[in-house]
């Protein structure tokens, strides 16, 4: 099920202010400011929920007749965020319901990246990951230096996750700067 239209939009306070300033949001709820919540949000900002009225949803199944006449696995979902023009396509699974959920999650991440830049969940996550990787790399290097003489280049390639979800971020139509200026 898609998030119901009554779901709240979760945003961090600075963004919330800019949204309200732009008159884009009537309802919003910030996290309660307990110290634990603050600490947690320093690690990872809360996930952002999306209103159904903020997006246009499309099920890509090609043109032509549907119903009994075709039996293609047509589980692809395309979401367009109206305010930013971001488009997400997803056919990760055979379940359309599941793809709708995945597409919404990724859209929320992309919007947040636009709004928060290096404060967004994905950016914070990536930093945590690259920190871990850096320290792992350091260890590895030390190890390799020790083994240097014996072997040459045993480093494995990191396998990319197979990516069936695409995001298109428009460059000219609406940039985050425009969003902040306008309204």
């Amino acid at each position: 099920m898609p998030p119901s239209s009554s779901s709240w939009l979760l945003v961090r306070l600075p963004t919330l202010r800019s949204y309200l300033h732009n008159g884009m949001l009537a309802h919003a709820r910030a996290r309660p400011f307990t110290s634990t919540a603050l600490q947690a949000s320093k690690q990872l900002p809360p996930r952002r929920a999306i209103h159904d009225s903020d997006i246009e949803e499309n099920f890509l199944k090609g043109s032509g007749p549907g119903g009994q006449k075709i039996n293609k696995t047509s589980s692809a979902v395309q979401l367009k965020h109206l305010a930013t023009g971001i488009v997400i396509k997803c056919q990760e699974t055979r379940s359309r319901t599941q793809n709708r959920k995945i597409a919404r999650r990724i859209l929320a991440e992309r919007i947040e990246e636009l709004e928060l830049g290096d404060q967004s969940r994905t950016a914070v996550k990536a930093r945590l990951k690259s920190k871990k990787k850096a320290s792992a790399d350091k260890k590895k290097k030390r190890k390799y230096r020790a083994l240097e003489a014996a072997k040459d280049g045993g480093e494995e390639d990191e396998v990319d996750e197979e990516d069936n979800t695409e995001a298109e971020i428009p460059t000219q139509e609406t940039s985050p700067e425009d969003m902040k200026k306008g309204g």
């Binding site: 055979r94 379940s95 359309r96």
Partner: peptide, 23 residues
């Protein structure tokens, strides 16, 4: 594969019975 998704359900399919459609 022997199944198809129908809304949130994953249902068994077999030759001789029509595959459920998303519409």
């Amino acid at each position: 594969l022997g199944t198809e998704f129908f809304g949130e359900l994953e249902l068994r399919c077999q030759p001789g019975v029509l595959i459920p459609r998303p519409e």
